[in-house]
């Protein structure tokens, strides 16, 4: 390699005088690429949710702020999402241990629980619509629909990958080969659970006005 190998110390104007490092094999490239793309995507999604939370916090500062009416169903939905994330972790452990039953049961349960979560969120929407009598002009209500809607869409999008991984799990094959896909699904689910806990905890589980102000650096 040229003198120095780090991005800071490399002197690229000096040509190689020794062997060139071997490249990754094609299969390795594909596996690493998917994981990297997922991590990059999750970073982009983080910015997306962060901007919505900051916008919410910024809007809260105005004197006419009226918080969203409390919806208790959201607690149950949170529990369901937590369980679906655990099931995916269980499936991943099964893939690593070579236990196909764990994989299949974990994936199917995660799928069913995710659908249940989405139905629960839809029901929460109906409840809120009834509570505000169809008047969406209160900004906090608008934020509720937007943030939960966008989160739900991300979950629904993840279902496409989960269905694919589940179909694969019901075909004969080595569980270790399924590990990468299941691991990506699990990462996505854990991440969206984290986002939901943040969103629910901060914005929709009660009056956390002071915490938000601290996060936004106002107090």
């Amino acid at each position: 390699m040229s003198t120095g190998t780090g991005i800071f110390s490399e002197t690229p104007w000096i040509a190689d005088t020794g062997p060139v490092a071997p490249a990754l094999s094609g299969a390795e490239i594909a596996l690493k690429s998917r994981r990297s793309a997922l991590k990059m995507l999750l970073s982009v999604v983080s910015v997306f949710f962060l901007l919505m939370i900051v916008a919410y916090g910024g809007r809260m500062l105005y004197q006419d702020w009226r918080p969203t009416p409390q919806i208790n169903l959201l607690w149950a939905n949170t529990g369901v999402l937590l369980l679906s994330s655990l099931c995916l972790q269980f499936a991943l452990m099964g893939a690593r241990a070579g236990r196909i039953l764990w994989v299949r049961n974990g994936l199917v349960a995660a799928g069913i629980l995710t659908v249940l979560f989405l139905v629960g969120q839809w029901t929460a929407w109906q409840q809120l619509t009834t509570l505000v009598l169809g008047d969406f002009s209160n900004p906090s209500v608008g934020f509720f629909f937007m943030i939960t809607g966008v989160h739900g869409l991300h979950m629904a999008g993840g279902m496409l990958a989960l269905v694919r991984a589940t179909k694969r799990a019901f075909q004969p094959g080595d569980t270790h080969k399924m590990e990468a896909n299941i691991s990506n699904c699990a990462l996505y689910w854990h991440y969206l659970l984290g986002v939901w806990l943040l969103v629910f905890g901060l914005l929709f589980s009660g009056n956390n006005f002071e915490i938000l102000l601290r996060i936004c650096g106002v107090i």
């Binding site: 997306f48 901007l51 919505m52 916008a55 809007r59 969406f136 002009s137 209160n138 900004p139 209500v141 608008g142 934020f143 629909f145 937007m146 966008v150």
Partner: peptide
């Protein structure tokens, strides 16, 4: 993207972002 969604909701649903 966020601002496009919020403005679209202001037009379509009558929200007040």
């Amino acid at each position: 993207f966020v601002s496009a969604i919020m403005m679209a909701l202001d037009v379509l649903l009558g929200t007040s972002f």
